[in-house]
Design a protein around this nucleic acid. Sequence first.
DNA 1: TTTTAGCACTTAACTTAATGGAGTGCTAAC
DNA 2: GTTAGCACTCCATTAAGTTAAGTGCTAAAA
Lengths: 347, 347
Amino acid sequence: MITLTERQSLILKAIVRDYTEGGNPVGSKSLVQELPMKVSSATIRNEMARLEDLGLIVKTHLSSGRIPSIKGYRYYVDHILKPEKVDSKDLKVIQHSLGGEFHKIDEIVAQSADILSQLTSYTTFTLRPELKDSRLSGFRLVPLGNHQVMAILVTNNGDVENQTFTIPNDLTGDELEPVVRFIDDQLIGLPLQDVLAKLQHEIPFQLAHYLQDPDGFLDIFGSVLSKAASERFYVGGKLNMFNYTTKSDPKEMQSLYSLLDQTDNLASVIGSPGQHIQVRIGNEITNDLLKDYSLITATYDVDQHGQGIIALLGPTAMPYSRMIGLMGAFQRELARKLLDYYRYFDE
Amino acid sequence: MITLTERQSLILKAIVRDYTEGGNPVGSKSLVQELPMKVSSATIRNEMARLEDLGLIVKTHLSSGRIPSIKGYRYYVDHILKPEKVDSKDLKVIQHSLGGEFHKIDEIVAQSADILSQLTSYTTFTLRPELKDSRLSGFRLVPLGNHQVMAILVTNNGDVENQTFTIPNDLTGDELEPVVRFIDDQLIGLPLQDVLAKLQHEIPFQLAHYLQDPDGFLDIFGSVLSKAASERFYVGGKLNMFNYTTKSDPKEMQSLYSLLDQTDNLASVIGSPGQHIQVRIGNEITNDLLKDYSLITATYDVDQHGQGIIALLGPTAMPYSRMIGLMGAFQRELARKLLDYYRYFDE
DNA sequence: TTTTAGCACTTAACTTAATGGAGTGCTAAC
DNA sequence: GTTAGCACTCCATTAAGTTAAGTGCTAAAA
């Protein structure tokens, strides 16, 4: 366990700040000017040498200034940084952007990714509150004429998922009614996960009593169901990547971009953060493509409706203090907004 | 009007081909080796000087080889190029990818953009058959419980658009019924454009007879309606841009990328191509961001269901012959697939 | 009149060399 | 423990030189 003297701590802090703001390695001479104590550059150099021995800062070459190492950022984040109180203007932006009317949870969550990316100029991810406890609360089949039927699935959280299908023969509402009744009787109230499980085994047999050819319907139902039960990350500010990437090789840019595009990868990258704000720096992220970036993740808690995730991807040299403050504020505001929203569906 | 001798034509063709394949300016010595006639490099140089006088080829600097100018590509495309017959493997890919089951026109059209981008390694755009003649053929309001209602709109083309709304008080199907009946009576069968127009004037008054507070409903109806009536380009292979862009400046990349992301811009860029395949090269495209690229556009014709658009964006140095052949094949296959699809909805 | 060989010339791209600036580590004195 | 001084290192930038590919032009050949 590393312990730094007060002065070393101040120096590390200044190096992180300078490098984060200016982007250039920081030398002893420039440090001496802005540090509160009055010592010579030689003294600073001595201290820097010690910080380097500890592995907290590194040189880019033998005679360069220093930049923070991953370990240095880590120490900074864990021991030095104090979360900045969120800027009141930023808070207004958040509140205003979340203040509007929304028709779906997913709209709110998707919009959140956009707001956050706008405020940070980085790339952001959001995941809606987890669906583990989602239960099937309604199922409709609406005949639309012309060989089309729309299947609509509603959960106890008020989520609605729908899909339109083309069927060989037109059906009337009456013909569909037994199926809907079967679902109402047997499946309503069950967790989506359980329904999904049953779909493999019991349901096909049971449905055979109601329908001659249940396969088509099973496809439909399964398709809407898995849509409703799948977890999708929303990504905000994908383009912002261009601002903070260190890569100039288009090839690497492309693979990075694909990573963000295929939202199923994101789950493994982001993982399941704990309750408080987590910062992963450089190679602490379990994905080689991201080893030069930093990832800040946090959950937000919507009481009995479970927890969602917000995350932020940026350069390792980012203003952590401001970002953590911002994430904290967003966490709270989003949770509040969703609680409001869910209030409709609670008794 | 420019006329070239046989030999000049061959030289231009070879320059276009070489440059397209190799990416380097083409010199007289390399040309002399691959041209069918046996002349010296000096002769080729003389001819090249003439082609340069005509503005068909240019030097990148005073003593470099030549590359085709915009005008040169233009001449090549107009007078020299013969569309390559589509590769049978490519055709299979197209047919197979379009062969599956689709639930919506938009799925087919979106998928088309992806197929085409995969085959070409460029960026592609598709637009569904135009909606001008789309008529409103059905409207449903499905109460989902928990303050939610889903509005569903169906057109005579079988397009389905839907949106879920949260409403202050729960309504039963019975309460919604007069509204739906009003629409059935007054608006079914009308072109969407007309309905959209009426929404501004007559409908609000008429609805007042049926509902105390028609505003909420008007919002809902208007929202679904404009969703159904809006034209959306689908974009395929946005990432492919990284392969063919000449830009290394991230800033420019970003604006280019935004252009493709905001699909409303695309309409003005792509315009309304004629019936046959159109090639626009470099500054012939009415957008400065694209002045270093080429755009191939074509309509596809689905009889009375109107025409859609397919388009392809790539470098000016692209294998036009192959691309045009490919576009032609795709045009036919997509039209066929959609005719099949629409057959369901025709009597 | 067209084609060709020959040659002087141009330019980009690459390599090498020179220079200046920012920063470091070390030593010896404070 | 701190500081001044200094030799040293490395990057970045500029300058100069070299090579390879290609051109235009001229004068002779076909």
